[in-house]
Design a protein around this nucleic acid. Structure first.
Lengths: 239, 239
DNA sequence: GAGTGGTCTAGACCACGGG
DNA sequence: CCGTGGTCTAGACCACTCG
């Protein structure tokens, strides 16, 4: 229904189909407006959206070109672990394994101030699913000190309570250490999938977490960026 | 300079700062236009961009609300392996390990038709960096049959030559099999980080690839989606 | 039915930058 | 210089949906 979206989709098609390969020049706004039977701002909107998606580059006077894609960008969806497990039709379980006040260690971003260190396990149908090793900055989130995380995981509490302005994620594969392995019911050295996330509120770190999944059967699905139909959502499964 | 971008940023700030928490109602377009001293379409553009970023939901008559974020979306950049290695200041090396025509196996999406199966290794400063196990659908890409991939990897050739309309990615951690381990100079069972990518042109699969990295030291960095400053780009490193 | 979003048009002015 | 992108305004019409 939206004309600028139709135009966006049509131009996207010309790019992905190879009609306009990387580096190719795109007709100017006036010509496109004529072709599509609309006014220039409508075309401009479509082109502007293509720029945002990183598919074309525009320079005054020089015109618009299809960008040389040197890297592929994909969109990952990381749901709340409970949501994820329940969406798979499995029973969610939460176990607090340890909680202590401690200064942020050298390994953390939290720094030398007061911090809350929490270790907990999320399970699916009683089977270990994710080990969560979290630091919360008590100077940024003093409220956390009053929480016991016996029934509810710190992830859900934080999502509901504390805003953040920036987040960083690191994905990696690692060998399970002795303690991790025991918690997850694996052999020491077994492969695990690790998601590390740090969030900030302004300049202050809020929380830092290592989410550790058994490598066997854990997969992260991703979808493309800059495509028309955002119908297919990312998801995770454990076959 | 762009007023709709300023408004976008300001509203984004009100959301991420917690002023407008999840579920909160946002003033209607007319009021915002008054507040920002512009016309309604300008505000509409900013709000429309927030919808695209997945931060708000809008319904006629009901107004606009901050979306309940049940999942976190992050943007992953996966550069061409050569680019990635050279960007780290290391010397890129390519070795073709095997190439054969074969019907797509049961494990592949390619199906029972003719396919090209390629195994090759990308190295950084002579050290194994990524093992590439690729299938190319020869019915979709007949040109590939005429290529020997002795000097150039199939990834670069494909990126330059063949368009695609859809891509799927799966990330996982796994234990290296005996052959993989040997190729990568690891012990059998060592953790590896696996990226699987399949691309289609319309309904036809183009290529399917498993990219296998040694788990030790390989990390994938991701950045947030829907933020104002797209300055920080994702990257990968090998510390 | 009335209020809200959703979108387009027509016209305009400015900024930039290649020739 | 002057063509191109970049953006805003003012006004308009429609579609939906809640009360």
């Amino acid at each position: 229904m939206a004309k600028h979206n139709d135009i966006h989709a049509e131009l996207l098609g010309r790019i992905t189909s190879g009609l306009w390969p990387a580096g190719a020049a795109i007709p100017n706004e006036a010509d496109l407006a004529l072709e599509f039977g609309c006014t220039r701002p409508t075309v401009a909107r479509a082109l502007s959206d293509l720029v945002k998606a990183g598919l074309i580059e525009r320079r005054r006077r020089a015109g618009s070109r299809v960008v040389e894609r040197r890297a592929r960008e994909i969109l990952l969806t990381i749901p709340l672990v409970r949501t994820e497990i329940e969406a798979a039709g499995r029973g969610y379980g939460y176990h607090l394994l340890g909680i202590e006040r401690a200064p942020g260690s050298a390994r953390t971003v939290i720094g030398p101030g007061e911090a809350l260190h929490i270790l907990c396990l999320h399970s699916a149908d009683g089977e270990p699913y994710q080990l969560e090793d979290r630091w919360i900055n008590l100077r940024t989130v003093p409220l956390a000190a009053a929480q016991d995380f016996a029934r509810e995981g710190p992830n859900e509490w934080l999502v509901r309570t504390v805003p953040f302005t920036r987040a960083e994620h690191i994905l990696s594969a690692a060998a399970a250490g002795p303690e991790e392995a025991e918690r997850l019911g694996l052999a020491t050295g077994a492969p695990v999938f690790v998601i590390e996330r740090t969030t900030w509120l302004g300049e202050d770190p809020v929380t830092q977490v290592r989410l550790i999944h058994p490598g066997q059967g854990f997969r992260l699905f991703a979808r493309d960026i800059g495509q028309t139909a955002p119908s297919g959502r990312g998801q995770t499964t454990t076959p």
